[in-house]
Write a protein that binds this DNA or RNA. Structure first.
Lengths: 347, 347
DNA sequence: TTGATTTATTGGAACGTTCCATTTATAGGA
DNA sequence: TCCTATAAATGGAACGTTCCAATAAATCAA
């Protein structure tokens, strides 16, 4: 089974008694080949244990069938879901997406992008690492390889982005808290170097403005976008003189951290302090108490991003429109009314 | 910036006024080149926006610098952690791992493996999808590409596997439950087509035997390895006449499902029913109640797998030894004593 | 039968690299 | 000065494909 040195198209040609061109045609499923010849060739392919050399083929074929997905944190189930959504549509299109993780490290991201370019990817879907410099994609754009940003965008960049309506989601969630009677509100986690952060915080402030919450009653605590970060945020916020009674968190991970910190203090999320998350990861529903969160349809955004990418490749363009995904607030147990408020549960 | 048609080594040569061979040497960091020449060439590379064509290079260079990681379920944070562990060591070695997800689908896995082979990977680290046929890797082995299994192994295969000591972990956990006074024990989730399942169940039964638990008091419920599966398992188990008072779960996802189902019934894990998970994902610690689980050092296993792979590539072999990782039981709140037992909390 | 048309098949020239065998330039020793 | 040794740079032949233009075989119309 299979000779030592790897078989090429010529070995197959010899084995089947045809020319290399014929073998190539069969490999591409050309209709020009007489069926019986094709069968003969295919048998030879089996016999010699041939594996197609896509590198060699790409040397002639202009573009490849691989698309790169560069993701900033695979450990976050949120991004894993995104990846899965994309894969679904790529699979149907016969493209194989290769995923790489940058672990939120711009240097690593640079390496990964370089490697993918060298590999000759047809396109790149990227969720950029925090701190990515605007110039990081200049060379890739110059090379004419289409890029789409997913979930995150870069401050000043003409690269199309697929992202949820962060501002509206945050606004919705904040309104919800205010309607529950909360008047001293916090925004927990994230940092201002992320566009997403600015959008979400913007929505929070917009709602505060709309309901005339005094600036003094808005507590904003930046922090890591992780459980640990969330725990720290709560501690910081409760230490101030007139602490908030409710918080919108940058994402669900932060929210889980906040809930954990509450429990450690003997407080209960929902009754003693209202918590709302963002992203609505699968876990949110199963937490105790179940987490109120802004659902962003992660897998759907992944599919959308993949579609945009395919279209860009097909039409050989490097431009496309941004896409803003609809969001909705999923109210669960973690966002109860303010205990000291007269307003109560209404609305 | 960057001409339209993509630049090649020859364009650089022309630009820098040297031969293509010189450029190639510079690209490989050869010491044979006079430093000033190298500088000149590197400048030209920048100027023309050159991107290295690894496909073309691999045509001559025997083998590439990319390693494929084929993972059965990226959504499971457990596997994401594994991937991250591997990436750490590959990065240090200057190899870029490309990850692909098979979504637990053998057909998809076949496509993914084929695609990676065509791409000319130097090696493959695989966590095989459920239902993988033993022959799936025959061609890859025949082609001389090293393969390592991570976390899962195949029934009859000479491919080296890196996996935790499942049997011992299950045994440890079961002993713990028995020492807590439980006498009617369950094993929840998973299915017998997985080697891992057989090992974990084996450990469970071994401990049962050691403590002379009657066969009638052992409840084994197969099911999906997800929260949903766990919920179903509990329902099934509680429906029988003498239901178990404790369960070892196939993995943490199942355990979370069991805890959720308990809460829905108004029962509390730890006090009303003891639950032990397997894998000790990050979430386990933060759950409420915190989940007792068997820690397997996921990232460590990932690193180990990556090291084995690098060694195989280096020594051009396709064989290596299996690796069995140490496990330990992390006792938290979910595994309280049996309420009706005299034995109590001792040990 | 002959020429035109269609259907199958085929050689050969790319594609962008690497690497070996040479050539050319530089320096050192007599 | 010439010869040799070393250092630096180079041309050309691969590598495994694709694709164009060309050939060969089969079919058809006259």
């Amino acid at each position: 089974m299979a000779s030592r040195a790897k078989a090429t198209i010529l070995d197959i040609a010899r084995e089947a008694g045809v020319s290399k061109s014929t073998v190539s045609l069969v490999l591409q499923g050309s209709g020009l080949i007489r069926p019986e010849t094709a069968v003969k060739v295919r048998k030879a392919i089996e016999d010699v244990g041939y594996v197609y050399n896509r590198g060699a083929a790409n040397l002639r074929k202009a573009h490849s069938n691989v698309i790169g997905m560069v993701i900033n944190d695979l450990t976050n189930p949120f991004f894993a879901e995104l990846a899965v959504g994309m894969e679904r549509v790529f699979q149907a299109a016969g493209v194989v997406p290769f995923i790489a993780n940058t672990a939120e490290n711009p240097v690593r991201q640079e390496e990964v992008l370089k490697s993918m370019m060298e590999q000759g990817v047809a396109g790149l879907i990227v969720s950029p690492a925090r701190g990515t410099t605007p110039g990081a994609f200049r060379r890739i754009e110059a090379a004419g390889v289409p890029v789409v940003f997913a979930m995150r965008r870069l401050p000043e960049s003409r690269i199309p982005a697929i992202a949820p309506d962060n501002r509206r989601g945050a606004c919705l969630a904040t309104e919800h808290l205010i309607r529950k009677g909360h008047r001293r509100l916090a925004f927990f986690g994230g940092s201002s170097d992320l566009v997403v952060y600015q959008e979400r915080l913007g929505g929070f402030l917009e709602a505060c403005d709309a309901f005339a919450i005094p600036v003094a009653d808005r507590t904003i605590v930046e922090g890591e976008t992780s459980r640990k970060g969330g725990m720290a945020c709560l501690e910081t916020a409760l230490a101030i003189s007139e602490p908030p009674t409710a918080a919108l968190c940058f994402n669900d991970a932060v929210a889980f951290g906040v809930m954990l910190a509450l429990r450690k203090r003997g407080l209960e999320a929902g009754t003693d302090f209202a918590v709302v998350g963002f992203d609505d990861v699968a876990e949110a529903e199963h937490y105790s108490p179940a987490l109120t969160s802004v659902a962003v349809d992660t897998a759907g955004l992944g599919e959308r991003a993949a579609h945009v990418m395919l279209k860009m490749i097909q039409s050989r363009t490097t431009r496309a429109e941004d896409h803003i995904g609809a969001v909705s607030l999923v109210v669960r147990e973690s966002s109860g009314p303010d205990r000291n408020s007269q307003v109560g549960d209404a609305a």
